[in-house]
Design a protein around this nucleic acid. Structure first.
Lengths: 131, 131
DNA sequence: GTTGACGTTTACGTTAACGTCAAGGAGCAG
DNA sequence: CTGCTCCTTGACGTTAACGTAAACGTCAAC
């Protein structure tokens, strides 16, 4: 198992964010790095969570939503009601994500069409070039 | 061709946003409804653009980015340099969208796995139910 | 032993994307 | 004419997600 550790600056650099952003995520309870004295010490689990957070942000989720999502992952459910609720939440998230993927596919299709028209237009211009 | 028109409240209702949001999009130059006297009159082209805007928002784009995207669609290029630039921009957007789709697919896969574990756990609990 | 490079907390500033009044005009029902 | 409903334009408020600056600790290097 990988037991390397990182400082906040190293973490920030690896993910191309600022240390301030990382601290912000900690304030919101999205990550909980070890403390050695007063300093933060980041382990691999923290890296995994940070990756999850940033993926969520790229997908347009708010940090609050991301909090509920990442908390889904490490929930020690135990109880049957909790499990049912979790499965329910998974369905909700899945629906959202599939909606977004549909949006993406549609946009990509339109971009393709737009590019076709551009290339056609370009071909016409090449046919009768101006000085 | 569909030449119906709508008021701002109707538009807002159709897309489940507020009139204020629609006005905001107009302030930023994302839509330009007709004016009849002082009132706005929305045509089908405005509906199309509003749909584009909201799709962009669902995908996590800022209104500024959306502005450059929607302006790509109705650009009357004319010049060859403009066309090349446009094609370039399309490539940029496509790369972003494909990154996001990858994010989505990965997240969906992880949700699937999580759900499997939940159901397995549930099955265990059902095997030895508590009162 | 002090200089620098890093870390910390506290706290106020900034930007985007609207929300939320306030004050008023336009048209129509009674 | 009155009242109602829907529209308009300001203009200030709010929230999220950090940015930025201040003031201070700490540890290795010189």
């Amino acid at each position: 198992m990988d037991d390397s550790t990182w400082t906040i600056a190293e973490m920030a650099a690896q993910f191309s964010v600022t240390p301030r952003a990382v601290r912000h995520y900690e304030e919101l309870g999205l990550i909980a790095p070890e403390r050695r004295g007063t300093s933060r010490v980041f382990h691999n689990r923290d890296r995994v969570r940070l990756a999850l957070i940033l993926r969520g942000r790229r997908l347009g989720f708010s940090l609050d939503e991301i909090a509920t999502i990442v908390n889904m992952y490490d929930a020690e459910p135990g109880e049957s009601g909790q499990l049912a609720y979790l499965i329910d939440q998974i369905a909700v998230r899945r629906a959202e994500l599939e909606q977004r993927r549909a949006d993406i596919d549609q946009t990509l299709a339109e971009l393709d069409e737009l590019e076709q028209r551009c290339r056609a237009e370009l071909a016409v211009l090449e046919g009768s070039p101006a000085p």
